[in-house]
Design a protein around this nucleic acid. Structure first.
Length: 267
DNA sequence: GATGACCTGTGA
DNA sequence: TCACAGGTCATC
């Protein structure tokens, strides 16, 4: 599943596109284009030069010399594939999650540059999106550089479970279901604990911010948000104490946690 | 603030 | 055959 970790890997893979002029666009799936259509997105890209490629949370941004930015979202199953003139596919294509096949009917969006580099979004489930000039300010501080100070602001006074707060892209950008479960497990924090209780402890906010950064960096190093130590299996034992993991729905998402080592406030 | 819809491949 | 996966958004 493409969380911020995967999108960061996509960004690095796509860095080869910087400085390239776009010569062709293929946008065969109108449903995938949000607040725009194939003609408009083609007009925005063709003849423009890609000046930089940025990431805000799970949003990938192709910035153009025209001042326009094209936002790519990957939903649950979207992948970014970059291929050079020789046709080789970028290693990002090897990432393991969900479907690993590369079916041409899943192609939702593609752009080709003058030198023959192609960037392509493949998404079987069609939950991703392409958007012109997306609202970048709607995304909170990034999970890889999150400070305790900014996390404190993001956790302002509510009783929502801490997991739901961390999944809220307006509060923290880039975290998805799997990474949040892993972060809570690493922090020995019950994902159901009210956000206000975490915020009330400066030491807790500090530790949580550090854990978010550390877990994010580790997942990045290991190549994906699915590489954590917390098993996502029914009846799987906790790696720390061997307890049978608990499976619940929190924040509308399937949640795994250890009923023993994550049951008490660690701070 | 919680819930369901969106979408469709996957595996039981 | 059908529940299930989960990022995002609309609606309750």
């Amino acid at each position: 599943v493409p969380e911020g970790v995967e999108v960061e890997l996509y960004r690095r893979a796509a860095a080869t596109l910087v400085g390239e002029r776009v010569v062709a666009v293929d946008a065969p799936d109108a449903w995938f284009l949000k607040h725009t259509d194939a003609a408009e997105v083609t007009a925005a890209l063709v003849d423009a030069v890609i000046t930089s490629i940025d990431r805000r949370g799970k949003l990938l941004l192709l910035r153009l010399d025209t001042g326009v930015s094209v936002g790519l979202r990957f939903g649950m199953t979207g992948r970014l594939l970059v291929s050079g003139p020789a046709g080789q596919v970028n290693p990002v294509a090897e990432l393991r999650y969900g479907a690993v096949r590369d079916d041409a009917t899943w192609d939702r969006f593609a752009a080709r540059t003058a030198r023959g580099v192609t960037v392509r979004v493949s998404d079987p489930r069609r939950l991703g999106a392409v958007e012109l000039a997306p609202d970048e300010d709607a995304i909170g501080p990034d999970f890889l550089t999150l400070t305790a100070r900014r996390l404190t602001t993001s956790l302002d006074g509510t009783g929502v479970p801490i997991k739901a707060a961390l999944l809220d892209q307006a509060r923290v950008g880039g975290l998805g279901n799997m990474l949040v479960d892993e972060i809570c497990w690493q922090a020995r924090l019950d994902p159901a604990v009210p956000t206000g209780r975490v915020r009330a402890s400066p030491a807790g906010v500090d530790a949580l911010a550090a854990q978010i950064r550390a877990t994010g960096r580790r997942a990045l190093r290991r190549g994906g948000s699915h590489t954590g130590e917390l098993p996502r299996d029914v009846d799987a034992p906790c790696r720390r104490d061997g307890s049978v993991l608990q499976r619940r729905t929190i924040g509308g998402r399937t949640t795994f946690s250890c009923p023993v080592c994550q049951s008490e406030q660690p701070w």
